[in-house]
Design a binder for these strands. Structure first.
Lengths: 182, 182
DNA sequence: GTCTATAGGTAGATAGAC
DNA sequence: GTCTATCTACCTATAGAC
């Protein structure tokens, strides 16, 4: 578990391919050979990182949606949870999930796709409710994809030293998509 | 030039690190050693791919903006050119630009950043005009970042075999951001 | 400008001791 | 479970012939 967290940060910062099993061992204070007692291959570590990133974000989102009451509050939760997971203190894992797909073997992909689809289904459901309430435009399938793209991209430019907190950024991004209320 | 195009596709499909100089040689029918007559390092090839991706897109965008007359038409051009460059027949290069930053050495980054900033400045200018004309919301700096994120992400899910052409997709994405006209 | 051949380095993974 | 030691393979880049 400590290894998975450390691996997430290394994979995010250097990329999966550039990170060696020796780097991974160093990060947790063991020799590279010892890793292979816990994992059969380096790729297994990558898959574990990705699975952690998406499942923990999904669980947080589920909880936030259940606690929110109005469609508007649920909609806000999408942005808030996703950005906090992506930009927050301890979540390099989700970023690895987004940027290291090409290094996942065909055999391991289906399992991760199931996890991703589960997460996106939550989004779809909340967006549909919001559209029904007249909060956002009606093309929710395309909206889901564009919004997730917008949020994912934030890792490329958001800096925590800047003027905006993550929660504030979530609010601003929400504003961009809300329809003017009549 | 033929090499740069071939390299773009290989880097996009397999990633830069997983693509060997032997792969690159194979793709253009020469031995791997011969590559180093044209480029000093493998990284130089990566930088050339990225530079091609962003500069050719910038030029296309410049032309499209000049030909467009209304703010609305210029705005549409942003979406159309970007998506065609990203999803079109021969433009793996731009995708490499987006996904292989980590493999670019610190020495080579500044040059690419200049090219990227030039492209984004075009965007900013068109968005500002559109906001002044009341077409889109006023927070154009954030809008630029979210829109570019949305467009970039399309490579992850857009399939040309699907129902939507690239130009149609551009139209739909434009619709999502346009304000209802009073 | 492309070839063959290879230097020099490092990668992921394994074996057996403790 | 972790160590040391090492295997095998492959990588980027170079050298010199043509």
């Amino acid at each position: 578990m400590e290894l998975i967290r450390a691996a997430a940060m290394l994979f995010r910062d250097q990329g999966y391919e550039r990170t060696t099993v020796r780097d991974l061992g160093n990060a947790v204070g063991i020799q590279s050979g010892s890793l292979f007692y816990h994992f059969r291959t380096k790729e297994e570590i990558l898959v574990a990182v990705m699975a952690l990133g998406i499942t923990s974000t999904t669980e947080q989102l589920k909880r936030a949606i259940d606690e929110a009451i109005t469609p508007r509050a649920k909609l806000a939760a999408l942005f808030r949870v996703h950005l906090n997971s992506l930009l927050g203190d301890n979540q390099a894992a989700l970023e690895v999930m987004l940027y290291e797909w090409r290094s996942v073997s065909a055999a391991a992909r289906p399992g991760l796709i199931v996890l991703r689809d589960r997460y996106e289904a939550l989004w779809q459901q909340v967006l549909d409710e919001a559209a029904a309430a007249g909060l956002i435009k009606r093309d929710t399938a395309l909206l889901r994809r564009t919004l997730l793209g917008s949020l994912h991209w934030s890792v490329q430019w958001y800096r925590s030293e800047g003027a905006l907190s993550v929660d504030q950024l979530a609010e601003h991004m929400l504003d961009l998509v809300l329809l003017p209320q009549t």
